[in-house]
């Protein structure tokens, strides 16, 4: 609730400041204009259609009115100029976020999920995830934005304004979370059938917790320990899942759907559509179209124990 006006980082805080200043000025103008209008309506005598209309005033006869209107216009212009200065100044503040020791993340938007890749100067330390962006508190993040199909928009209201992801154009957005927490980010540009359910979560963690998480993400998928999970992995690799999804550490290496190597570590499924619980995961796999009609993942009619095995396997991929 009240995401825009509850900033958790400097970018959103600058914007919220500008919001309050602008709102105050606009509210003042609104009240003033309506007050003058109301006063004018109240004090003017009543008339009717038969009344002889006022004659055209002689030039110079309405000097006081001219003065009032001119004054009001000048005041409006001054207020607008002030708001313009405030707006440009805020823009500059947003551009001047220090990027020392920035975390580099690449986000590529698809219909209707977010591909997130954490960059690193050493290539073996790069890793990918989906629909979730975990960042360390207090450290700037430079997000490079790209689109795989149509225009989407990256928006985390509690951290910053929007940036569109436009195919053929690479944009960047710089932000920083100064408070730990989970920040919701809906897709903010109409992108087709499931634009309504294309959200990602930004989770800001204290730096040590972030490093622990990143290390875990860099590891390949854990090997299954019990029979059910083993059967689940067998189903995954021999069925249709591996045609689209990747699980590093297995032979599944496709990139057309979210990377599932550490799916159990995520808070939500289906780009924010469902919570990441075993029941929801089972329901999702059985029929994603029920939750997101039009999504690119087909339904799978699996026997109950097969579905349980698959869920058991995916559930251990932390």
């Amino acid at each position: 609730m009240n995401a825009v006006l509850d900033p958790a980082g400097p970018q959103a805080a600058h914007i919220a400041e500008l919001w309050w200043v602008t709102l105050a000025v606009c509210a003042l103008v609104f009240v003033a204009v309506l007050a003058v209008l109301a006063w004018g309506l109240w004090r003017a005598p009543r008339g009717d259609p038969q009344m002889v209309p006022g004659a055209r005033p002689a030039p110079g006869a309405e000097k006081h009115l001219i003065r009032w209107v001119t004054a009001a216009t000048v005041i409006s212009t001054i207020l607008l100029s002030g708001l313009l200065v405030a707006s440009v100044a805020t823009d500059r503040e947003l551009a001047q976020l220090s990027l020392t020791n920035a975390l580099n993340v690449r986000v590529k938007a698809h219909q209707w999920w977010w591909e997130v890749t954490y960059d690193d100067p050493q290539p073996e330390r790069m890793f990918a995830t989906a629909n979730e962006l975990r960042i360390p508190v207090g450290r700037p993040v430079l997000v490079t934005l790209d689109s795989g199909d149509v225009i989407h928009s990256f928006w985390v209201p509690r951290l910053h304004g929007k940036k569109d992801l436009i195919p053929g154009r690479t944009a960047t957005i710089q932000l920083r979370a100064d408070k730990a927490g989970e920040y919701h980010g809906p897709c903010a540009e109409y992108c087709g059938l499931q634009h309504a359910f294309m959200a990602f979560e930004v989770i800001a963690l204290p730096p040590e917790q972030f490093e622990t998480w990143a290390e875990a993400q860099r590891k390949p998928a854990a090997d299954p320990e019990d029979a059910a999970a083993r059967r689940g992995r067998e189903l995954f690799l021999s069925g249709s899942c591996m045609l689209c999804h990747a699980i590093h550490g297995t032979t599944a290496n496709a990139r057309t759907a979210p990377d599932l190597t550490h799916i159990a570590s995520r808070t939500r499924l289906g780009a924010g559509r469902l919570a990441n619980t075993p029941q929801d995961l089972a329901a999702w796999i059985a029929d994603p179209q029920k939750f997101k009609p039009g999504v690119n993942m087909p339904a799978h009619l699996l026997p109950d124990d097969d579905l349980k095995a698959l869920v058991a396997y995916l559930g251990m991929l932390k």
Partner: peptide, 12 residues
């Protein structure tokens, strides 16, 4: 959108 498919399961 709703097309349950059978042959996605190799065991079926």
């Amino acid at each position: 959108f709703d097309k349950p498919s059978i042959s996605s399961n190799p065991r079926a």
